[in-house]
């Protein structure tokens, strides 16, 4: 599979990373060479192999339903690049 410039633009959009037109070709070449190299995995016979997702094979631990966090709006907002009162602020969104 080989990336075309439109795909590079599309995934950049999905990833919300601005890619200027002048960068597209270099990125395309880079990504293609990495993807080409990755395709060595096609040599591996994985028929009937169950995918391994996590780093460990334990079962999930659950926590009890108790309120023991939150109540610290100031700490949550302290790093905000823009805030208004106790809200985070962003450019107006039209739904």
């Amino acid at each position: 599979m080989s990336l075309d410039p439109a795909t590079v633009r599309r995934i950049a959009k999905l990833a919300r990373i601005r890619v200027d037109e002048g960068q597209v070709e270099a990125l395309r070449a880079d990504l293609n060479s990495i993807l080409g190299w990755i395709e060595q995995l096609n040599e591996v016979d994985t028929d009937g192999v169950a995918p391994l997702t996590g780093g460990t094979q334990m079962a999930l631990r659950l926590r009890e339903d108790a309120v023991n966090d939150g109540g610290m709006a100031e700490a949550v907002l302290a790093n905000a690049p823009d805030r208004d009162g106790d809200y985070f602020a962003v450019p107006k969104v039209v739904e």
Binding site: A66, V67, D69, G70, G71, A75, G85, D86, Y87
Partner: peptide, 27 residues
């Protein structure tokens, strides 16, 4: 209906002051 959130210990009550029921996980 649960006291705390799905993945954090912050409260779920309706109508609280903005960002007062937020853990660092939720943010």
């Amino acid at each position: 209906i649960s006291k705390s959130k799905l993945f954090s210990g912050a409260a779920t009550a309706f109508g609280a002051a903005p960002n007062s029921q937020v853990s660092f996980v939720d943010a």
